[in-house]
Design a protein around this nucleic acid. Structure first.
Lengths: 224, 224
DNA sequence: GTCTATACCGTGATAGAC
DNA sequence: GTCTATCACGGTATAGAC
C-alpha cells in the first residue's frame, strides 16, 4: 500500500493532489467518456484548482492515458500470473477450459467485487474504450494485446484440435460478454424487473465461465 | 412541392437537407459518441449552415434521438416478425434455440452486410449506447425493451425447464457479444494478425449463433 | 419555411505572480 | 507546487433577414 494511503493513528494522511486528480478523472471518464468530461469538472471533483490537472498531466489526453495505464498494468500482470499458474498446475495434461477462463476473469472479478470505487470506475471505462472505434485501437490493442496473446495460447493448449480462426472468434464473443458486464450499466436489472442485479458479480462471473466455455467447445471442437 | 423534392431529369431525387443532416449526424455520432461530436462538424459534413441542425431538430439532443429512433423502429419490427415466424413454424413443438437466436440476429446481420453506410454507422452507435451508463438506460431500455421481452419469451419456449434468472444472464452475455460485433472496431483483425476480419459478418454471425446457443444450454439446461 | 449572422459562454491550455 | 488572469478557439442556440 502506498504511503499516501496509510492511516496514521489519530489522523489520516491526506492524499496527494496528483492522486486526487487521477481518481476524480477516473470517475468522470468512466461515466461520460473522454469527450463528455471537462478538465474543470475534474478539478472541481478533485477539489483542486483548474490549472493543476494540466500541471501534473500535461494535457487532457495525458491525464486520460494515465488513468488507463495505472490499472491496466496491474490487471495484465495479475491475469498473466493466474493463467500461467493454471497451465503449470496442469503439467503435461491438457489444462481445463473452465480453469483458463476463470483465471482470465478472476482479477477483474476481484476488482469489481472489492467495491473499491476506483476499480469499478475503471472497469466501466474499459467498457467504453473497447466498444469505440477511435479508442479501441489506440488503447486496447496497444496495452492489452500482449496479455491477450498469452490467453489465446492458453486456449490453444486447452483445445489443441481447434482451428485458430475459431479461437479468435470465440475470444471476440467472450470479450464482448465480459465488456458489457464490466460496464455495469444496470440494464439487466431493469430488463429482469429486479430478478438479476448487474452488481451481483458472483452470479455473473460463475455463469459467464460456463457459458463461454461451452460456447468455445461448440465452435472449436464440433465439426461444422 | 419544394424544389428539392422534384425529380430531376437524371432520375435522382436530391436528398432533402433534413435527411442530409440526419445522415451526417449518424456517421459522426457512430464514431465519436454524443459528446465527441459538435454541431459544427455535423453541419460541415452535411454541407449546410451551422444553424440548420438546430432549426430542424431543436437541439443536439433532439438530433441524437432522431438518429437513434429512425432505425430502432425498423429493427424492432423486423426482429419481432422474424421471431414470431420461427415460433409459428414450430407449431406445437418446441422451437429450436439456434433458430430463435438466428432470427434475432438476422435483421442486424442483413443491415451490416448491406454495406449501406447508414446501417453500419447505426450499429456502431448502438454499441456505444449499450455500454454506457448514462445512455444505456435512457435509450436502450426505453426503446428496445419491448422487443427484448418478445425474445426472452421465445427463449422460455425453447427452454421450458430453464430458470428465469439463467435466461436473463444468458441474454446479458449474448447482448455483450453481439454489441461488440456491431461496434465493428477492427480489433479482432489486429489481434488475429489479419486472420479474422470484423467486417466479415457471415463468419461472425454463423459462429455467434452456435456459440450463444450452447452457452445458453450450459447455464440453463445443466444442473449446476 | 429557409437560412445567415452573430451572441454569448465554456473549453483546454499557458504565462507569470506568489 | 499552487493559483490568478487571460488567451484563442469553438461550443450551442437564437434573432431576425430573406
Amino acid at each position: 500500500m502506498p504511503e499516501s494511503l496509510k492511516e496514521t493513528p489519530g489522523n489520516t494522511v491526506p492524499k496527494r493532489r496528483r492522486d486526487l486528480i487521477l481518481d476524480a478523472a477516473e470517475a468522470e471518464f468512466a461515466v461520460h467518456g473522454f469527450d463528455g468530461v471537462t478538465m474543470r469538472q475534474i478539478a472541481r471533483e478533485a477539489g483542486v484548482d483548474v490549472a493543476l490537472p494540466n500541471y501534473y498531466y500535461k494535457s487532457k489526453r495525458g491525464l486520460f492515458d494515465a488513468v488507463f495505464l495505472r490499472r491496466a498494468l496491474v490487471l495484465n500482470e495479475r491475469r498473466a500470473t493466474a493463467i500461467r499458474s493454471v497451465i503449470a498446475a496442469a503439467g503435461d495434461a491438457t489444462p481445463g477450459l473452465e480453469d483458463i477462463i476463470a483465471a482470465y476473469l478472476k482479477p477483474i472479478r476481484d476488482a469489481q467485487e472489492s467495491h473499491e470505487p476506483g476499480w469499478r470506475n475503471y472497469c466501466s471505462l474499459v467498457a467504453h474504450i473497447n466498444n469505440s472505434r477511435v479508442w479501441g485501437e489506440q488503447m486496447m490493442s496497444k496495452h492489452f494485446n500482449d496479455f491477450v496473446v498469452i490467453f489465446i495460447d492458453a486456449l490453444k493448449l486447452a483445445m489443441p484440435e481447434a482451428d485458430e480462426k475459431d479461437i479468435y472468434w470465440g475470444y471476440h464473443f467472450f470479450s464482448g460478454a465480459l465488456t458489457l458486464t464490466m460496464a455495469d450499466t444496470g440494464r439487466i436489472d431493469l430488463l429482469s424487473d429486479g430478478l438479476c442485479h448487474s452488481g451481483d458479480f458472483s452470479e455473473a462471473y460463475d455463469r459467464m465461465t460456463d457459458f463461454i466455455a461451452d460456447g468455445f467447445r461448440r465452435i472449436c471442437l464440433t465439426a461444422q
